[in-house]
């Protein structure tokens, strides 16, 4: 069983995201620890990219802050190495294909395996193109997380059948970012996913309040939150740690109530 499955063992999972190196690698490490202390079951670390096409403004700006502060793929690996000495929770990268391609797939996934990165989410690598790196990643035991969107329709079954780790269900059209309302018919999407795959499902994009998280946790195995956490970093900068802890704790409580 993949290590990612452990994230879904303590009831409904809360998955938190930060962009690595925003505002610095030291602070990223602290923020990851705060998320875990607040109850995060899995942590997504964004490897910043110059042109994050699937991101809304909040995470775009986090990418710019991280890159301006000198973040590189190698420094993110160093961050993981340091974090891994302290925590056991599954870690997943979230990035775009070009930084991974440029690093070289075997070299990239060998380092993931060596340092304990359990999976990777690549929004610009759809099902049709996953042959690009699927075998290399699998060879190193790293799960390539599949995304399912509100527009996936007849593709859901096909994608879910080959999914590993967990399935990332995109709640809304458009890019990442906080939304007041989620209009997609998630129950019917999740029904098809469940019928096609035993892999746990987590829903992300737009979720930011405990109430929303609780609603989603009623129907999914996990809830993913990115922009709302990054927004705390945007607002509080280096002092965001305690705010992140409080926020993650409230979100984890909200999803836990849905056991």
């Amino acid at each position: 069983m993949s290590k990612i499955a452990q994230a879904f063992k303590n009831g409904k999972a809360f998955i938190g995201f930060i962009t690595g190196g925003d505002p610095s690698m030291e602070k990223s490490e602290e923020f990851i620890m705060e998320m875990v202390r607040g109850g995060a079951d899995l942590v997504e670390i964004g490897i910043p990219f110059s042109d994050p096409m699937a991101e809304g403004l909040v995470i775009q700006e986090a990418n710019i802050r991280a890159l301006s502060a000198g973040a590189t793929v190698d420094k993110i690996f160093d961050l993981v190495a340091s974090v891994r000495q302290k925590i056991e929770v599954p870690l997943v990268f979230m990035t775009y294909l070009n930084p991974v391609f440029n690093y070289g797939y075997p070299r990239f996934f060998a380092r993931c395996a060596e340092l304990g990165v359990d999976g990777i989410i690549i929004p610009d690598l759809p099902f049709e193109e996953k042959g690009e790196l699927a075998d290399v990643a699998a060879g190193f035991g790293v799960d390539v997380i599949s995304l399912i969107a509100p527009t996936s329709e007849q593709r859901i079954q096909q994608i879910a059948q080959e999914a590993t780790g967990f399935i990332y269900v995109v709640s809304s059209m458009g890019v990442t970012g906080m939304r007041s309302e989620i209009k997609t018919d998630l129950p019917s999407i999740l029904e098809v996913v469940r019928a096609s795959s035993p892999v746990p499902t987590a829903v992300g994009f737009g979720i930011n309040t405990p109430k929303q998280a609780g609603e989603i946790a009623k129907i999914a195995d996990g809830v993913i939150v990115g922009s709302a956490i990054v927004k705390l970093i945007e607002k509080h900068g280096e002092n965001a740690g305690s705010y992140i802890y409080e926020y993650v704790r409230s979100m984890k409580n909200a999803v836990s109530e849905q056991e």
Binding site: A149, T151, I159
Partner: peptide, 8 residues
């Protein structure tokens, strides 16, 4: 190489 949302 595009997001799943655009594939269909």
């Amino acid at each position: 190489y595009i997001p799943e949302t655009l594939m269909n």
